[in-house]
Nucleic acid binder design. Structure first.
Lengths: 110, 110
DNA sequence: TTTATATATGAATAATTGCTCAGATGATAA
DNA sequence: TTATCATCTGAGCAATTATTCATATATAAA
């Protein structure tokens, strides 16, 4: 590829975040990149909810929601709290809140 | 599902962003949720680059990169500028920058 | 005009993802 | 204990996505 400006490429390479961090970041965005999961998170933006509330809310089976919640937990976007038979979920921290709101704002810019 | 707290569900429903906005937001996050595309965007965080620079940078074929850029364009995350035979890409606006940085910061919180 | 270079696009394939279903776990109540 | 409810998990299937390859477009140079 003769058109490559190697100097530019090298410069950018030096300023790059490391691979693990990129993987992790892309992973978080990937988890956010699904309408059902976005709905779940937006619901939790308002208040703590149990799995069956969430299932009712997004009109999906508890099983489907549980699978989604597993991904959200793995990405540390939500945190569970058991209370008797039920498990209540909430957003993991304020940073998740900021990330969600940034996304929603960007979408509004049309 | 007898455990559903309908009152909570209804309250959350009323506060929800509308469907289109959720779709759009999830779509943006989905595009961000891929390591190759994240690399492309992080590179453009630093400076404007042409397709073949980007291809060299992520070690992928120009064709593969072009396909990814199409998605990034569609999501309004990058903007092309033709200069002769080459097309230079840059981040679309400062909001994209903020979104990327939020994501990277969240990933760093471990 | 013909030729070469940079990028874009369409179709096909391979890999990934989300859902359903069946069954497991954990907690409460009878 | 047994029964029941809420949730989780693994396997399998359907839908989606990323890549490759071949081809098309657009610009520039010969």
């Amino acid at each position: 590829m003769p058109c490559v400006n190697q100097e530019r490429v090298d410069r950018v390479r030096r300023l790059m975040p490391d691979g693990d961090r990129l993987e992790e970041t892309a992973g978080i965005f990937k988890v956010l990149g699904d309408v059902t999961r976005m709905k779940l998170l937006c619901a939790l933006l308002e208040e703590e909810l149990c799995v069956c509330d969430l299932a009712e809310f997004v009109e999906a089976s508890p099983s489907a929601v549980s699978h989604q919640l597993r991904l959200l937990r793995a990405a540390r976007l939500v945190r569970p709290r058991r209370e008797g038979k039920m498990i209540y979920y909430r957003l993991d921290d304020d940073h998740v809140r900021r990330l969600l709101k940034e996304g929603l704002v960007h979408a509004a810019e049309d």
